[in-house]
């Protein structure tokens, strides 16, 4: 009994000292914005936002890579307080599964309003729009590349761009995302410009 208590006091004191020292020795400065966001999050580390925990989510919000409405445990209150802190619009608590569906878009002609002016047919670079003068036009979905070139010429604004619902048939592995910070991107950009200038 006594041995147990003593051993635990010794062990706890030892680890307490080591961790306390480590916190001082290995201190890393972090951005105050991330700290403030992190303080608002519920710290349940549940991962329902699809990030690995509350802090990674806070970092993603601070970097502008994530919406503020992805935290179910925080609820509407959290969205409200995050919106206050970051001075952005309050958005309803969302299901973040929708984020996974950000895929290609296609043009769709609202056939009731189409006047058959053929302007969009001339604008389409891939001949994906069918129709004749004074006849209703329509878009061949499988040919449409979602370039949006047909939208400005339409005099009656009857063309809408809608996202293609992802199905198992058109599913692909996502393209790897490299986190390139602005400075790196700038360096690459200037090098490219130099190379181009020398070659022309």
């Amino acid at each position: 009994m006594l041995a147990g208590i003593l051993a635990f006091v010794a062990l706890a004191t030892f680890f307490g000292l080591v961790l306390g020292l480590a916190a001082v020795v290995f201190k890393v400065e972090s951005s105050p914005v991330i700290d403030q966001i992190d303080a608002l999050l519920p710290q349940t580390q549940c991962g329902q936002c699809s990030f690995a925990g509350c802090r990674p989510y806070a970092e993603a919000i601070a970097a502008g890579e994530a919406q503020i409405n992805l935290c179910p445990p925080g609820g509407e209150n959290l969205v409200q307080s995050l919106a206050d802190l970051l001075d952005v619009e309050v958005i309803p608590l969302g299901d973040n599964d929708d984020d996974l569906f950000q895929g290609p878009i296609v043009a769709v002609i609202i056939e009731d309003t189409c006047i058959g002016c053929t302007l969009c047919i001339q604008a389409c670079p891939v001949d994906a729009i069918l129709g004749a003068a004074k006849q209703m036009h329509t878009v061949i979905e499988s040919e449409c590349t979602g370039c949006e070139l047909c939208v400005p010429p339409c005099p009656v604004d009857c063309i809408e761009m809608i996202p293609v619902k992802q199905t198992l048939k058109n599913w692909r592995w996502p393209v790897p995302q490299y986190s390139v910070n602005n400075k790196q991107a700038e360096t690459i950009f200037t090098t490219l410009k130099h190379v181009l200038a020398e070659n022309t």
């Binding site: 599964d97 996974l100 199905t167 198992l168």
Partner: peptide, 8 residues
């Protein structure tokens, strides 16, 4: 699961 997200 990544693929399942697109399944019907």
């Amino acid at each position: 699961r990544e693929r399942l997200a697109a399944a019907d």
